[in-house]
Design a protein around this nucleic acid. Structure first.
Length: 583
RNA sequence: GGUCCUGUAGCUCAGUUGGACAGAGCAACAGCCUUCUAAGCUGUGGGUCCCAGGUUCGAAUCCUGGCAGGAUCACCA
């Protein structure tokens, strides 16, 4: 509309992007602002004049505009309160507001996340991965795509053999039941056990005069692990049985952790099934001349034209490497799903890998290579530095969740809330609040950034946190319970500025969801929710809802509260966070 | 050394396609619970947006060059 107005006044055509419409900043009056600086070349007038003239024209043209004001080169437009009221009584009441329907022929998005190793329990880094993957799946789905969540379990290899070996030699038949431990923790313990014994052996060999490198390669324990891997690959039934048993323990443990985190997958792939994939494709590429062979028989891709190095694709013994497998699984998944895009949620330490993967697939002639997207996230660091499993400085996922819930309980008891509720309901609320704090803390940060996590202080329950948003939601539920018999359909009181501002904020929700889906960035939604919640809290503080002056005003404010509750619920759902009805 | 990412208040982080005096929370200090939940609200203090150039009416944002931190460059996954 603004473009038309400009056309009429100054008799020239302007392109859409020359007219910048944005949200008016808080300290100025108005809802939307047009920045007129780009238009000056057309208008040949001062910024103030241009804005004045344009403002008057727009007021004439549209009944929705209640007024305009000009400050420097900024034309602030106030939208009529009637417009906001209509929005409140209309679109905003839809529980699916902000979400696009997923149709039969909607684009298909495949998203791979979690991807754990079966030799140790999940830690804080995995939590970030899992939460991101889960939330992005929800967001992408809310934007109208068909989403397939998949997990690729790294269940084979020398590292798995290490814990198997340690258990075999020193485990005395211990099981999760006999040890009273989650299976993944038990297996993780043997992985550490291996490392300890291995280091002792290396030290001893060095003491006997061996060089460190030599000792590391010659330590009998490592040799046994290699031997075990060979037996595994040769399908040795004894080794396979041990492998299946111990992996079974780990899966049971992971399932528990996943359940607690609230995440799930449509399909799980296992590397033991896929590790040979990709070989055929690579050999075809070799025939086509896209790849080359070295003297020893190994197969390589030359990526120097792309500014990268040479990359190994098949070992000299003809076996696959990680890259080869990923080429294979991507191909397999494309054949299976014909995905329109494929997101890999993997830490930024693998940026190079995914850069290469995409190039190699393109070289091999797959047009869908461009549809792969690496959602790369930063590391989670502790105040004292990086987490190192060998130094015991990892934050275990299960322990962390325990702590969060315990803190939620302690907090709640100190505040003396929930006293009249049953133990079961209390438990549920502690869980929701504790997990809400954890999830929100991680998701509110831009994925690509490294973040520091202080288990003692960082995860707070005040301020820009999950519990703050949950708390606001609980208050909304409370006021709705008390006003349950008030008719919300007669909502027609006058809108105060703060109320209009809340509606305007919600007006931006759908765009925020779209943007978050386009950039795979849940933090946009988290920060949006915080802004909205904070604004509502302020409103709630100095405006009474149930005892407003006029009945229609009570009705309107209740409706407003209800709608905000819905948006919070919807947004938190996209983050994978539950909202308690009371807390 | 090559490539990629990051650098904003004491700390943890926001900052929309370049726009108005750079924002929150935590921490510190001062207030507010007989009234819909005080996990809340109000106020005060706190900034060379890493540095230097450039583009622009306008730069935390874009470009170039530095500096600092992180990741990565395996016949590991």
């Amino acid at each position: 509309m603004a473009t038309e107005a400009i056309g009429e006044i100054w008799n020239s055509t302007v392109r859409e992007e020359m007219v910048q419409v944005q949200k008016t900043r808080r300290d100025f009056e108005g809802d939307f602002t047009i920045v007129v600086f780009p238009l000056l070349r057309i208008t040949k007038q001062s910024p103030e004049q241009t804005a004045e003239v344009l403002g008057r024209k727009l007021e004439e043209m549209s009944g929705l505009i209640a007024g305009t004001n000009v400050i420097k080169g900024f034309l602030n437009i106030s939208v009529s309160h009637q417009y906001w009221k209509d929005l409140l009584a209309g679109d905003l009441r839809d529980p699916l507001y902000g979400r696009s329907p997923v149709t039969e022929d909607a684009p298909q998005v495949m998203i791979e996340f979690s991807s754990p190793n079966t030799n140790k329990p999940l830690h804080l880094g995995h939590i970030r991965n899992n939460l991101l993957g889960h939330s992005v799946s929800k967001i992408v789905e809310a934007a109208g795509n068909r989403v397939h969540k998949v997990n690729l379990v790294n269940d084979r290899g020398i590292h798995i053999c290490k814990s198997m070996l340690a258990w075999k030699e020193q485990g005395n038949g211990e099981t999760p039941e006999s040890a009273g431990l989650k299976g993944d923790h038990l297996v993780g313990r043997y992985y550490v056990q291996f490392d300890t014994t291995y280091k002792a052996q290396v030290k001893e060999l060095v003491g006997q005069g061996m060089s460190k490198e030599e000792a590391e390669a010659e330590a009998p324990l490592l040799k046994s692990a290699r031997e075990m891997l060979r037996s595994w690959e040769a399908d040795d039934p004894v080794v396979r049985r041990l492998w299946e048993m111990m992996n079974g323990w780990v899966y049971a443990g992971f399932d528990e952790t996943y359940k607690r985190l609230g995440i799930s997958f449509h399909k799980t792939y296992y590397e033991s099934d896929t590790y040979k994939l990709g070989r055929t494709i690579v050999l075809e590429g070799l025939e086509k001349g896209v790849l080359y062979t070295r003297e020893d028989g190994s197969v390589w891709a030359d990526l120097e034209a792309e500014g990268l190095d040479h990359k190994l694709l098949l070992r000299s013994d003809g076996t696959s490497v990680y890259m080869t497998q990923d080429v294979g699984t991507a191909h397999q998944r494309y054949e299976e799903y014909r995905f329109d895009s494929h997101i890999y949620v993997v830490g930024n330490e693998q940026n190079y890998h995914f850069q290469v993967l995409s190039i190699v697939l393109k070289k091999l002639g797959f047009p869908w290579a461009e549809r792969l997207y690496h959602l790369s996230y930063g590391m989670v660091e502790l105040p004292e530095g990086k987490m190192k499993s060998r130094e015991g400085t990892v934050v275990d996922a299960d322990d962390l969740m325990d702590e969060m819930e315990a803190t939620a309980r302690q907090m709640s008891e100190e505040l003396g809330k929930l006293e009249e509720y049953g133990e079961e309901e209390k438990q549920r609320i502690y869980r929701q609040v504790g997990m809400g704090a954890l999830k929100y803390f991680i998701l509110k940060v831009d994925p690509k950034k490294n973040m520091t996590f202080d288990p003692r202080e960082s995860v707070d329950f005040n301020g820009n946190t999950g519990p703050f948003i949950q708390y606001t939601y609980a208050r909304i539920r409370s006021v709705l319970r008390k006003g349950a018999d008030i008719d919300k359909s007669v909502a027609s009181g006058d809108l105060e500025e703060k109320e209009a501002s809340l509606i305007r904020m919600m007006y931006e929700y759908p765009e925020t969801v779209r943007e978050a889906a386009g950039t795979y960035n849940p933090s946009l939604i988290a920060n949006f929710l915080y802004e909205l919640t904070k604004e509502f809290n302020q409103f709630y503080h100095d405006h009474s809802i149930l005892s407003a002056d006029k009945p229609e005003q009570v009705s309107m404010r209740l409706l407003l509260a209800e709608v905000i509750g819905q948006v919070i619920e919807s947004g938190m759902d996209l983050l994978g966070i539950e909202v308690p009805k009371r807390m």
